[in-house]
Amino acid sequence: MHDLDVLGVIFILGLTCYAMRAGGYVLAASMRDDGIAARFLRLAPGNLFIAFIVGGCLSGGLAGLVGTMVALVTMAVTAREWVALSAGFGAAIATSAIAP
């Protein structure tokens, strides 16, 4: 992979993220909080996250699946990201040691 390709992707993704950040402020006048667009923006992330997790669990094997589930449940219970991630990593490492 060429350095220029990587740099290009970083700049494109950076520009995309900035457009999302600034876009809401600039376009606020034309966006109603209860409109279809606003509703779509609220609902899309959760659905994409689920689909993303399915892919991640598929490629991560049993350790990935167990770790992800433990992280999710811990987050739901504690609402603390770092507790959830630590628990998830711990569970994944334990699983990979038991069933490599």
Binding site: V9, C17, M20, A22, G23, G24, A28, M31, D33
Partner: peptide, 24 residues
Amino acid sequence: VAAMVVACIATNSRYLLMGAHLRQ
């Protein structure tokens, strides 16, 4: 690249709402 950009837009769409709120 195209899939990455679409994923960025979709997952960061919440920033549009945050930006709109900040404008208010």
